[in-house]
Design a protein around this nucleic acid. Structure first.
Lengths: 108, 108
DNA sequence: AGGGTTGTTCAATGGCTATTGAACTCCCGG
DNA sequence: CCGGGAGTTCAATAGCCATTGAACAACCCT
């Protein structure tokens, strides 16, 4: 396992990358759950895809700057980078998550 | 030229499709300009890409439900589907456009 | 009817995306 | 120290993306 994980700086957050990350339903599902749980390890999302597939999506979320990943023993703990996102793109994440919940509620 | 253009129904607006459409800088630029102008024909965006390329991006914007296209003589007039988007996903479009302006202002 | 403007269609391109299974690494608990 | 749980790496796949140039179609004007 890699020792140090790369995370983009707060000032480098890129709107295209963020929207692209959130345009995938699996990734949006992960972010949504993370918003509810506060944080969670990879295995908390196994119902959304295979381990390999999650590794892929989680890397994309991390590289886009949406989530922070901290290593703890053999686990990786994910959390949303809420404040940094809010500082750079106010209301963006909450609004998109609200839309996602709304769509889910509409039995889409 | 095709006679009838397909537009998704308001209730069919899909979040993945919308975010995907807005994740591309060219398309976001078109939507941004459209938000300022109210409406505009295809040729109003020629500084953003070749004619062929614009045809492609405009089709994607239309198919995602973000823009409405009306035929007028040899021109096609585009406009944002603001109310319908707002009804289904409140604040989504304005917030994303705000983020886009913010990013542009930050000399990205 | 002819010519120009407006925008489309087509085929082709290179590159990225999401997904998979098998093999692997790392670390913790016993 | 070794077994198992957590997650990664790799190679492969099929499919979509954005972009291009050349050829075409529709319509308006004179």
């Amino acid at each position: 396992m890699a020792r140090a994980l790369h995370h983009p700086e707060a000032e480098q957050l890129d709107l295209s990358a963020i929207l692209d990350a959130l345009s995938d339903p699996v990734r949006r599902g992960i972010v949504l759950r993370l918003a509810e749980l506060g944080e969670g390890r990879c295995s908390a999302f196994l119902d959304m895809g295979s381990k390999t597939n999650l590794t892929y999506h989680l890397a994309r979320l991390r590289e886009s700057g949406l989530v922070h990943v901290r290593i703890e023993g053999t686990s990786r703990i994910l959390s949303l980078r809420r404040e940094e996102l809010e500082a750079r793109f106010p209301s963006l994440l909450p609004t998109i998550l609200d839309s996602a919940r709304r769509e889910a509620a509409a039995a889409g």
